[in-house]
Amino acid sequence: MDLTTEVCAEASHTRERITIDRLMRTEIAFEEASGKRSPLKSLYLAWLSNPKNDPDTNALERPYLHSTVRRSSSFPWIDVTSECPLDYVMHDHKGVTFGDQSGNRVAECPVWTHARWCAIEYEQCKYEECPVAHYIDQTIRGVYREYLRLLVPILSETTGVQKIFYSYRVLTPPQAAP
């Protein structure tokens, strides 16, 4: 799978695309070891249980209500209707790094390199029409974090993918870069 590394003045990161099989094995092991529910597994199972991927069913949001990971909103999502990936729009995005980005274009992310790689990954999910998972290890503006992220596309036979839900699980919480 793809392995990308980038080092620049305000950020550095490694992004490895991983198979869904590998992601699920990791998440099952996490659940067994911690007794907690994996938000990534919840999202993926919700996506699987909604084979028609009809966004009106809200099927994706149901498992989240039972998740032990409590948040005030449903899964964040990306409006990928635009033809240009930099113009995709973030929704319900309560980001740790840059604060609330809801309603912003991907290109408006304050750190360009982060915007670019996110746009690339959203575009992959849109055009491959399948879940896309990454292991991400990054330092942005001196803050290090490590996490797994899963993107799942909402398919439509008539319009293609216009919406992508995503979730992540932090492996190493944000901390001053070593």
């Binding site: 990308t4 590394t5 980038e6 620049c8 003045a9």
Partner: peptide, 20 residues
């Protein structure tokens, strides 16, 4: 003089290295 960015990508048998 600082380099602005280094990127390396491996995808299958393809590779890309770029310094900006």
């Amino acid at each position: 003089k600082p380099k602005e960015a280094h990127i390396s990508i491996k995808s299958g048998d393809d590779e890309w290295y770029c310094s900006s």
